[in-house]
Simulated scan of single mutants.
Amino acid sequence: MRLLSISLGKAGPLFGLNHPDYSSVASAIHKKPVSTPSQASPVEIKPLGVVGDEQADLSVHGGLEKAIYVYPMEHYAFWNELLTRETKQVVNLQHGSMGENFTIEGLLEHEVFVGDKMSIGDLEFTVVKLREPCFKFNAKMKYKGAAKAMLQSGKSGWYLRVTQPGTLIAGASITITPGQRITSIASQNKALFNRGNQQDLWD
């Protein structure tokens, strides 16, 4: 298990300044890697997340409990195939495209539980909850079914609290220290998707 890249982004208009209906909708979902194994630049991580990263809506992103968003690179093949099929254009997403800060490998949602400790390099984090996608994710992916597909597939990623800040570089190894192991990210994901179906949120 290791950290493949560290990404950050700045808040800005999600749909562009000239969109007639949504010009005021802001997002920082457009994130780019600033540290990769081939360019392993050190990145400072503080209690509120990656230094230099921004969130447009602090009611649903960021803060101490959602300081870092983690996404497994194993899911990228799924998205490339889905989006290529649905948008009729060849899609080859780069790390950070899900809006994640940490792109990792070797660890998936069914293996991660709320309260688990993640050690990455010399830093420590606590698993908090899954990522709940919204219409902004649909806009980023240019596919109106993207949020539903994220939950239906179980490929949600998860948020971390920073418990030991410091400096990280891409390529750092990851270890997990189990917590109580009551609620996995996968089970949270399934419950949220079922609730969305019951409330007709996807129609």
Score class of each variant (00 low, 15 high):
R2G: 05
L3F: 06
L4D: 04
I6A: 09
I6D: 07
G9R: 12
A11H: 09
G12T: 05
L14K: 08
F15V: 07
L17T: 15
N18Y: 10
H19P: 07
P20G: 13
P20A: 12
P20K: 13
V25I: 10
V25Q: 03
V25L: 05
A28C: 09
I29T: 07
I29A: 06
K31D: 00
K32M: 13
P42F: 11
E44S: 14
E44D: 13
I45C: 09
L48F: 13
V50M: 05
D53L: 10
Q55I: 15
Q55L: 07
L58A: 11
V60K: 13
V60A: 03
G63T: 04
L64G: 08
E65F: 09
E65A: 15
E65M: 15
I68R: 14
M73C: 12
A77G: 03
N80L: 06
N80R: 04
L83S: 00
T84Y: 02
Q89L: 11
Q89H: 10
V90D: 10
V90A: 12
N92V: 08
Q94H: 10
H95Q: 14
G96T: 05
G96W: 06
M98E: 02
T103S: 14
L107Y: 05
L107W: 10
E109N: 03
E111Q: 15
E111N: 11
F113R: 03
V114S: 11
S119H: 10
G121H: 03
T126G: 01
T126P: 00
T126A: 09
K140T: 12
M141E: 04
G145L: 06
G145T: 06
A149W: 01
L151W: 02
Q152Y: 02
G154R: 04
W158R: 07
L160G: 01
T167F: 09
A170Y: 06
A172P: 09
S173T: 15
I174R: 02
T175V: 15
I176L: 05
G179Q: 01
G179P: 04
R181H: 05
R181V: 03
T183G: 02
T183V: 11
I185E: 06
S187V: 08
Q188Y: 03
Q188E: 13
N189Q: 07
K190Q: 15
F193M: 05
F193Y: 15
N197P: 00
L201C: 10
W202K: 13
D203I: 14
